[in-house]
């Protein structure tokens, strides 16, 4: 078994439901916090388009209402990502991960562009399909070991989780936005509002980095 990334710095236990920080998850958490702060603080950019074949370019206007809604969704996405980073049990982790998928669609759902809408729709379907192996993995973990606590599973006091559960968890997280399913997301990045759109990719990367830790230790 591979060691957890150092001993937990802080643990808050409510039975099986718990929160803990290791140096690894704490740094991931801080990154999610940092980018959420950027979402809160920064104004979105104005996209400039070129008219091909000419020298002309124009700045696109985006309505305040649309940007307000998208900022709300980005902050929700940031909070869900932070939740996924700190939760110390498999079920809460999967719950926050599923929430990340939903909010990711929300971030670009209000954009008035056909390409973005199509990409968001396709990504949404993959993310929804991804929740099935995700929750299935968590269910198999609790059914076969009797606990959801990652610390208890890592500590060796409970039997190790079966390989199938780990594979399902990884597959579920990949469905929420990692390569190769990540490709569906590329067109979503055409949307204006850079700080919000970046949350889409940041949240996927962070939940993927966390799931690696989870499947290595449980």
């Amino acid at each position: 078994m591979i060691e957890l990334e150092g001993a937990p710095l802080f643990t808050l236990e409510f039975g099986d439901i718990l929160v803990y920080f290791t140096p690894y998850t704490a740094s991931l958490f801080l990154l999610a916090l940092l980018f959420t702060a950027i979402v809160v603080l920064s104004r979105p950019e104005r996209q400039v388009e070129i008219l091909f074949g000419t020298d002309a370019c124009y700045a696109k206007d985006t309505s305040i209402e649309e940007l307000r809604f998208r900022r709300f969704m980005s902050i929700a996405c940031g909070l869900a990502t932070m939740g996924a980073m700190v939760s110390g049990d498999v079920f809460d982790y999967t719950l926050f991960t599923a929430l990340v998928g939903v909010t990711n669609v929300g971030i670009v759902a209000a954009v008035k562009s056909r390409h973005v809408q199509n990409a968001a729709f396709q990504y949404g379907i993959v993310a929804l399909a991804g929740t099935l192996p995700l929750f299935g993995g968590a269910a198999i973990v609790v059914a076969s070991t009797g606990t959801l606590s990652i610390l208890r599973l890592a500590g060796g006091t409970a039997p190790g989780a079966p390989l199938l559960a780990k594979a399902l968890l990884t597959l579920g997280v990949m469905g929420e936005g990692m390569a190769p399913f990540y490709a569906a997301k590329a067109e979503m990045f055409r949307a204006p509002g850079a700080p919000y759109v970046i949350m889409c990719s940041l949240s996927s990367l962070l939940i993927f980095l966390r799931v690696i830790e989870v499947v290595l230790v449980i």
């Binding site: 740094s27 980018f35 996209q47 400039v48 850079a194």
Partner: peptide
């Protein structure tokens, strides 16, 4: 993790200016 985060940095560089 840092290597993957560099990708986010690239997105940030590219998207933040509004330039096509």
């Amino acid at each position: 993790g840092i290597y993957m985060l560099h990708k986010i940095v690239e997105h940030g560089f590219g998207l933040s200016s509004g330039s096509p």
